[in-house]
Design a protein around this nucleic acid. Sequence first.
DNA 1: TTGAAAGCGATACCAG
DNA 2: CTGGTATCGCTTTCAA
Lengths: 341, 341
Amino acid sequence: MVQIPKTPAPVRRPAPTSADVARLAGVSRATVSYVLNNTSAVRISEPTRRRVHAAAKELGYVPHAAARSLRAGHSRMVLMPAPAFPVGPLYSQFVNELQWALGRLDYTVVQYGSLGLTGDEAARAWAELRPVAVLVPGSELGAQGVDLLKRSGARAVVTLGAEAVEGAHALLMDHAAVGRAAGAHLYARGRRRIGVVVPGESGLEVFSRPRLDGVRQSVRGTDATVTELPLAYEEEAAARLAARWRDLGLDGVFAYNDEYAMLLMRALQDEGVALPDDTAVIGADDLMIGRLLRPRLSTVHIELPSGRDLAELVDRAVRDPGAELESREVLGAAVVHRDSS
Amino acid sequence: MVQIPKTPAPVRRPAPTSADVARLAGVSRATVSYVLNNTSAVRISEPTRRRVHAAAKELGYVPHAAARSLRAGHSRMVLMPAPAFPVGPLYSQFVNELQWALGRLDYTVVQYGSLGLTGDEAARAWAELRPVAVLVPGSELGAQGVDLLKRSGARAVVTLGAEAVEGAHALLMDHAAVGRAAGAHLYARGRRRIGVVVPGESGLEVFSRPRLDGVRQSVRGTDATVTELPLAYEEEAAARLAARWRDLGLDGVFAYNDEYAMLLMRALQDEGVALPDDTAVIGADDLMIGRLLRPRLSTVHIELPSGRDLAELVDRAVRDPGAELESREVLGAAVVHRDSS
DNA sequence: TTGAAAGCGATACCAG
DNA sequence: CTGGTATCGCTTTCAA
């Protein structure tokens, strides 16, 4: 461990305020505000502007967001809960796009770490920040929470999840559609004894449950059977599952996503199961790794709404909070047939 | 698109304040504050407490964080910039741990979306929120930025990156060590013409550059050569690279990480290059996929600091901002030798 | 063109 | 035990 000498001035001065800038520039606080905000309603002489800017720079003045939004009565903060588990490239990229798009509309996205808070506690915590809009993936939030947020000034609450919540705009992401697509595909390929790999890890049920249900729906009324296969994301777990594969007598399997599919495929191949002849495999999410596997992995490609679209929805909702609540189906699921099925 | 009827009350009432609660409960705002904050210095009668709590619940009162921290002169917000590119499971998990650990210490982590802001602009934007601490991955932040943040009240600035920044605590993550480990390993395995796969994608240079440099360092003064191999994360790019592999005449290659390694391995295998006989391959990050490849992928396992450690560092720094700045090397890199090298 | 002052919401001191 | 009130930093009328 290396020690770097501390800065020469250990004194903790309070942050400079607009009053300090005013004093240094020899003007009033009002003038400082006018100059720094480029208020067009008031004209300030050029020399004064320069003095103010110089003073601000010299002091390292930074406006106090809390004070500002307190005074203004609103902010342009869009709040999202920070995801509670490692999240794939799909979601990362979606959030990035969204941040960018909202940034262009002059909003600021804040991901709030609310680990260990349950639905209503979380809603309270978010409400304290008085965000202008709240984006909530999943269905942790109930009608109560939405109401709380709206009562504390949120002009839009948008949920991204399986079902709409009273009072909130909803981007419906029906993961059952993913399962239905996969199930229908396997059925069409002549498979009748279908396994569905479900992550053993907790937190993923929100996605895995509907995907499983979707498979069930897709074969309802046929002679096909669906078997749930819990699988932890570990080699040994996959090996154990593969070891009893012959006994299971499955001829097709839908894995939660391409990563679990890869895990399972490897274990099956090590076990001497022929893919896709003995067992057809299909994954989901259309990750790059699927294309690199041999046989190439069939998968369900998922189409998320673009960040731009969502940003525009948020903006519309914020500008006109009285408008009808939108509720749209946004998750597209399309089978990409490759060699594993 | 389905339309859900809007809620019956389209009136936008302002959020209830402590004054509203006081009015409804028939007490003063001071009393409300005492009750809701459980202030131990003052004793409030039980009936009054009840009335206040009831009023607060009825109105759906939520304290206004901005007003509170304005008054208090500080907050317990720890700010991190939101990552600008899809980030792997390693980092996701690290951030989660950190959030959890800081949460236990009663801090709140906020990931601030500062897309498109350069170092100093970003520092300004962060400073506006008056966070008590700022955690910055990468080296986007200069001494100036650190100074700005501290002047606006940040009691701790911690950088996670290649080099220390004046005035900030530093968790040094020397990615060159990853390259050195990989390079030394390949050299020890008798490889002398070493290629290094560098992502074609921008934004990753922060990591890829030092990893490449590390390889160079590890073979300095030997007869080994190092060839930089830019590679976009696409199948075709990999195929093109593989097509000229014989001409390149490389007998060992270090890929930026396991994902790029997998991409390259597949292309090389399709091209008929024998692994590891013709070319030894080693990746980095020790992802699950590496274990699933055949041959099993050798990799450089990366040890990040635990979220708990970092949380404690932040807490120490916040409690005693005058203390010596800590600067520690925290990135552990260890070769995991498997079958591809 | 500039300044004085009110007020956003919450808290903590000091009286009563 | 409870209430008035000053205060945090900033914006924005209203006057000068």
